[in-house]
């Protein structure tokens, strides 16, 4: 019993250590960064040649600020990357992004978000089950302990986005 208590106390002590974990959301954040390289946006998607590339997090920030930290100071092509935090009803805000990440908290507003962005070159990424089949473009899906991607290429085509074959090969096509 004595052993048990001392072992327990030792582990409790460890609990007081500051904490950070490489997690699912680190991987998702890295993917979002990759998407900026493996998807082609029409020139018209940007306000001007110097405009930043904007990634919007819609709803609850499951990255806990991790995406902001990861993206900070990074570029894609010649464009500076920027993260914005939006809510689903902010139509102008949504249209000002090149990519949005729809949190599970906003899944039920997906239809509204999609109609707001109808025909606009905004890559809609999500993480809820069946996100891509539900009309989103790229959905994260855990497959055999790995973070897989589901792609609805018809939806991406309608938004005039070109997804590279490298990314398509990796993903599961759902349409």
């Amino acid at each position: 019993m004595k052993h048990a208590i001392s072992a327990f106390l030792a582990l409790v002590w460890l609990f007081s250590s500051p904490a950070r974990a490489e997690s699912e959301y680190d991987v998702k954040a890295a993917y979002l960064f990759k998407f900026t390289k493996f998807v082609e946006w029409p020139v018209a998607a940007f306000a001007g040649p110097d405009a930043p590339f904007v990634i919007g997090i819609v709803g609850h920030d499951a990255f806990n600020g991790g995406l902001d930290r990861l993206i900070e100071g990074n570029t894609t092509g010649d464009r500076r990357l920027e993260v914005r935090h939006l809510n689903a009803s902010d139509s102008a805000g949504l249209r000002g992004c090149q990519m949005i990440f729809v949190s599970t908290s906003e899944q039920r507003r997906l239809a509204n978000i999609l109609s707001t962005l109808q025909g606009r070159p905004v890559l809609v990424v999500g993480e809820s089950e069946g996100f891509a089949s539900a009309g989103g473009m790229l959905g994260f899906a855990l497959r055999e302990s790995r973070m897989g991607i589901e792609i609805n290429s018809a939806a991406a085509r309608q938004a005039r986005l070109k997804i590279s074959s490298q990314l398509l090969n990796l993903a599961k096509l759902v349409n």
């Binding site: 490489e22 699912e24 680190d26 890295a30 990759k34 990861l70 855990l142 302990s145 991607i149």
Partner: peptide
């Protein structure tokens, strides 16, 4: 900290995230 950014798409897709199926017959973390 930004090690993950340096990985290729394939490498990213190979990163393991601890999930379990048999606890609830659903893939969950």
């Amino acid at each position: 900290p930004n090690r993950l950014l340096g990985l290729s798409l394939d490498e990213l897709s190979e990163i393991k995230i601890d999930t379990v199926y048999a606890a609830s017959k659903v893939t969950e973390k």
